[in-house]
């Protein structure tokens, strides 16, 4: 099976802070690939780079063999029709109902008649268990429901690649279980390729076919979920077991606090 996304020698810096340094990463077609790493490491930025919303300072990102970085505006928008991104915030349109939110990409890109469009939207809502909520306003939804509606909207155009940005953040155990099942089921039933970016290690390792762990501007480990669990790299052991002390610093870089206090 081929690679849907290929990242080649990619570097990216934001306001003089280097987030990625010569990163190489492949996303296999039809699989769920997880990208794990501590907060602030640039996981969301990586999704925006794949979606062409940001441009790397060097290197290249290929989607279906085509360069996302060098694509012209119209070409990039064509590529994005084959991508879906579930934002951490959901990013629903607050002035629209649940139904209209999911119908939005269909109304923009297709000429479907109203009955066909309604059936399609209801099918998408049914797949996330929210067909009964179609007349609610987006502002009336709980965080978990909002994310499921956003998922229905992101899959409305049947994308080839589905990207999930921290899908489990702030979810109660039931919502988390539902989302896990949804990601797995959608990947299988729609034949998608999925990228799940998260720091919820246990949940992600349950569904991922392949895992990359990012830290220190690059990949520190990769492999299957079992391979990652048994990896003895101290940085990985600290991250997976949630240990406060270890090679990955808890503190943002700063001068010595005791010295600073003494100087005052």
């Amino acid at each position: 099976m081929g690679q849907l996304v290929q990242i080649r020698d990619m570097s990216f810096a934001r306001e003089q802070r280097i987030l990625f340094d010569n990163l190489n990463l492949d996303i296999a077609q039809g699989k769920i690939t997880a990208i794990l790493g501590p907060s602030g490491i640039g996981k969301t930025t990586l999704l925006k780079l794949i979606g062409g919303q940001l441009t790397p300072s060097s290197g290249d990102i290929l989607f279906s063999g085509e360069s996302v970085c060098r694509a012209k505006r119209a070409q990039l928008y064509q590529m994005r029709r084959k991508m879906g991104l579930l934002f951490q915030s959901g990013a629903l349109f607050p002035e629209l109902t649940v139904f209209e939110n999911v119908a939005f990409p269909l109304r923009e890109h297709t000429q479907l008649t109203e009955p066909v469009l309604q059936t399609l939207v209801r099918m998408k809502l049914e797949s996330v268990g929210l067909r009964g909520a179609e007349q609610l306003m987006a502002t009336e939804l709980s965080g978990g429901m909002g994310r499921r509606v956003a998922l229905a909207r992101a899959t409305a155009l049947d994308p080839e690649l589905m990207m999930y940005d921290e899908p489990f953040a702030g979810q109660d155990p039931i919502s988390m279980g539902v989302l896990l099942k949804l990601i797995r089921d959608l990947n299988q039933s729609l034949g998608l390729t999925s990228i799940v970016v998260s720091h919820d290690v246990t949940e992600v390792l349950e569904i991922a076919d392949y895992v990359y762990v990012l830290a220190d501007k690059t990949i520190i480990a990769q492999g299957t979920a079992d391979g990652i669990k048994s990896n003895q790299d101290p940085r990985l052991v600290q991250f997976i077991n949630g240990l406060p002390n270890g090679p990955v610093p808890f503190h943002y870089p700063a001068s010595d606090f005791l010295k600073d206090l003494a100087a005052q």
Partner: peptide
Amino acid sequence: ATEQISSMEMMAVDPFKR
């Protein structure tokens, strides 16, 4: 600020035109 424009871009809808 609420990423609505970002999400539009990812749905291949050009926010400049929409």
